[in-house]
């Protein structure tokens, strides 16, 4: 087991949250968890193909950040993109249909698990190569500033949240984009989901400075670490970063310390992570922790939480039916979408 970092302390009771807002976060986390569990089931039953990277364990990050955004803000993701898309509002049925390669999928069955897109929901994409989504997210953030400052549109205060993993922070595009974002004060959140492992490469073996949030300082950018297993903590830092970005004060680097409960992808034998390490992180399950918080603070009771879970399970079941019953793309459309004017 690699030396664990001390997780930053956050005292949730001090944070104000309305019961309906708490339930909204809970529902989003449950949606992510149940959706991914269903994906694993479908993959092992041979209904889903390709590389499928599941998000189990990291839900507090997606929900804490994306639910702090407005619907006209932008989200940019990686190959582990199902749950970011769901949090951004892409309907579960359209994500599931995409994984089944169906015409009703959010990318019309052309993208697959690692390439989820929805212009309607400002979901800029799942990007499958390490780091390549960061410049694209930077472009969306530049666009907001361009509209505000070059075109004089004072309503152009949209923020972009760009997600990526610890392994990506050793890639040049990470540093290049932090530089440009700080240089031009772009409204962007760089959200590192540090789950400690890049497939089989432990973070500490890949980087000379494992504390990623500290890398913001050389760009004159705020860098914060946060317990990525605590949705209230993630929400708190995200809200601050969004407020700064929206006010034109520039980017923030957020390092969320988290853990994936499954292998890198469903094709990964996951042999390198120790049992002790996995157990230590499973004990911090962000959903169980948030349930405990909601109950302790009297923001919800057991019945309400069960209602949420039942409702989401129905939605997942409906999504599965929708995906199974949807048509595949027509062979006549093999060349459709190559060019914009065709």
């Amino acid at each position: 087991m690699v030396q664990e970092r001390t997780l930053p302390q956050f005292h949730a009771p001090a944070a104000q949250i309305a019961p309906e807002e708490g339930l909204r976060l809970y529902e989003d986390m449950i949606l992510g968890r149940f959706f991914e569990d269903k994906c694993a089931e479908m993959y092992y039953r041979g209904k889903m193909f390709g590389f499928v990277h599941l998000y189990n364990g990291q839900e507090a990050v997606s929900s804490g950040v994306i639910k702090s955004l407005r619907s006209d803000d932008y989200v940019c993701s990686t190959y582990r993109d199902h749950v970011h898309a769901l949090s951004a509002g892409v309907p579960a049925k359209n994500v599931m249909a995409e994984l089944f390669g169906k015409e009703t999928g959010c990318s019309k069955g052309r993208g697959g698990s690692m390439h989820l897109f929805s212009s309607e929901h400002n979901m800029l994409g799942g990007f499958a190569f390490i780091g390549e989504g960061i410049p694209v997210a930077l472009g969306a953030a530049f666009q907001s500033r361009y509209r505000r400052d070059a075109l004089g549109d004072s309503s152009a205060d949209q923020v972009t949240a760009c997600f990526f993993g610890d392994g990506t922070t050793n890639n040049g595009q990470f540093f290049e984009c932090l530089n440009m974002a700080a240089l031009w004060k772009l409204p962007i959140l760089f959200v590192v989901e540090n789950n400690k492992w890049a497939i089989g490469m432990a973070h500490e073996r890949a980087t000379s400075q494992p504390e990623i949030y500290k890398k913001a300082a050389v760009f004159g950018m705020p860098g914060v670490e946060v317990d990525g297993m605590d949705v209230m903590a993630v929400r708190e830092v995200a809200q601050q970063a969004v407020a700064r970005a929206r006010a034109g004060e520039g980017p923030t680097l957020i390092e969320a310390l988290t853990y994936r409960f499954r292998g890198h992808s469903l094709a990964d034998p996951d042999e390198l992570r120790s049992k002790a390490e996995k157990e230590a992180w499973l004990a911090r399950d962000p959903i169980k922790r948030f349930e405990g918080y909601l109950l302790e603070q009297n923001l919800a009771d057991e019945g309400t939480l069960k209602e949420v879970r039942d409702r989401i399970q129905t939605r997942i079941d409906d999504a599965l039916t929708f995906a199974e019953e949807s048509p595949e793309p027509s062979p006549d459309d093999l060349y459709k979408y190559i060019f914009a004017d065709e």
């Binding site: 932008y74 960061i134 410049p135 930077l138 472009g139 953030a141 530049f142 040049g172």
Partner: peptide, 28 residues
């Protein structure tokens, strides 16, 4: 046209090209 419409970039070809892709996706 000003500094945003004629933007001097750092020497970071892959990143500023990707940035242009993101700007194009969002309407510029």
């Amino acid at each position: 046209y000003g500094e945003l419409r004629v933007l001097d970039t750092p020497i970071a070809e892959n990143s500023f090209t990707g940035m242009a892709v993101g700007a194009a996706m969002t309407g510029l």
